[in-house]
Design a protein around this nucleic acid. Structure first.
Lengths: 261, 261
DNA sequence: GGTATCAGCTTGTACCAACAAGTTGAGCAA
DNA sequence: TTGCTCAACTTGTTGGTACAAGCTGATACC
């Protein structure tokens, strides 16, 4: 008999076996797993041991659990973001790429706004070449798609810029969009430096984005430059399981002309 | 007394308290936390409860644990990758941006190579506009920095391309670099489509990259185009805790001229 | 029919106990 | 000094128990 030719701990065997069955399709996306008690019987392990194995899969983002309901295989649905186009050009009207992108995808966008006068955190101050702790205006945005939390966006503006463009410090949306508003005051952004990183969410982020365990966040930091200097820094925090960033570099006419799907 | 004005479960209180102390600097990067037994005494909880709280912080990537040693606050050291420059131009000699980037950063690069003849997976086939399951050459690369696993890179080449540039299918490195070799056969890449995503690693990835729990991976998919069609697709898997991707868009002369640190 | 309750399922939290396994340093022996 | 052993720490694994809390459907009641 094949008894215990295994060096691995039992909870890992449980996790591996379930992972294989999920990959194989025995349990498809959205379907429910057997209950802890059933799994305990099947693997001849205690409920605690089975819970350890299931906990592994949860923290790997493969399944979710809900009290009273059971364990469910996570389904993946991702949203594409085109980050390499410019922001300021020919956008129809109010606001940003986000609303148009989401609407074009046939989804319903929704966002809440907040404006604060605060001080520059160190990392932002470095990027904007101003002093840490100097005055700054923070415009914060919490975005939803079909009422599902999608991303948060925090843009810091240095004090010298706010003095030239005072409406940045006023609460509420800037109707024509901040980029256009800045351009009308002679601040034209002609270059962006983007940084992309990933990590596990902080408890705050997990709460705002309603992220379950095992889902990382995607951090997008964009610093906008005029011909002379950096003018603003935007940090967007995405749910990693729902978003993908796209960049186009060089000449991609071969891709875009024949949209052979 | 402030008894139990708390709705939160005890293991969360433990995790929150420790997270605050780590943020505050009570336990700095690299320092050791008190042992489970000490924490149990301090929080008046059982060892299991304390373990649950510590497990949270581990799966959030804030601390690590090693048997016999204890828990340690993770230190963060990130490596910057400039993804927006072209690959083919004026690189000195053998191989890719990776070696030069790492060497310039004063670190020691090291990589292992593997070449396979295989079939096209569905997602790659779509990007390269060939049939799923058709013949493909896979060049796989496992990269280290100072002997620490850093990333894996898998590039798929379609069959039609390999027939024009047969050395792609031969094992071992292409001395002058694949991009240059392709250009010498009339395959000049003039555009790249990049996609960036994140998720928790699969067990295979966790093994290859020696990733602990609570660390996501950063997935970078680059499809190279000639003027006529896509020619190759590279998927790079980075350790999310050690890497950050940078893109430059538009005119950034204001950033690059005065390298005010 | 509509509604309220509740039994019986599910997972979540918390504790206890015992032993396995990795690490370290004290202290003894050669 | 050098090297070995081992006790005393650490976390890892696995079992047990009990109760809390969320969900669902059947049942009884109005």
């Amino acid at each position: 008999m094949m008894g215990s030719m295994s060096k691995q701990p039992k909870y890992q065997q449980v996790a591996d076996a379930l992972r294989r069955e999920i990959d194989k399709g025995t349990y498809g996306p959205g379907s429910r797993l057997p209950s802890e008690a059933e799994l305990a019987a099947r693997f001849e392990a205690s409920r605690n041991t089975v819970r350890s194995g299931l906990g592994l899969l949860v923290s790997q983002g493969l399944i979710t659990s809900s009290q009273g309901l059971g364990y469910e295989v996570r389904k993946h649905e991702i949203f594409e973001l085109n980050a390499s186009r410019f922001e300021n050009l020919n956008f129809p009207q109010n606001g940003d790429a986000y609303s148009t992108d989401v609407t074009n995808a046939g989804r319903r966008p929704h966002q809440t706004f907040r404006v604060e006068v605060t001080t520059m955190p160190e990392d932002i101050a470095q990027r904007l070449r101003v002093e840490t702790g100097s005055r700054a205006v923070l415009r914060f945005c919490h975005r939803f798609v079909d009422d599902v939390p999608w991303s948060t966006q925090a843009t810091h503006y240095p004090d010298w810029l706010v003095r030239e463009a005072p409406r940045l410090a006023e609460p509420g949306d800037v109707a024509e969009g901040t980029t256009r508003y800045l351009a009308s005051h002679g601040i034209e952004q002609i270059g962006y430096a983007d940084e992309i990183a990933t990590r596990m969410p902080t408890p705050d982020e997990a709460r705002l984005l309603e992220i379950g365990p095992g889902v990382p966040v995607l951090l997008w930091t964009r610093t906008g430059y005029t011909a002379e200097r950096p003018v603003r820094c935007t940090i967007t925090t995405f749910r990693g399981d729902l978003n993908r960033m796209n960049y186009e570099i060089g000449d991609l006419s071969a891709r875009n002309e024949n949209d052979a799907q």
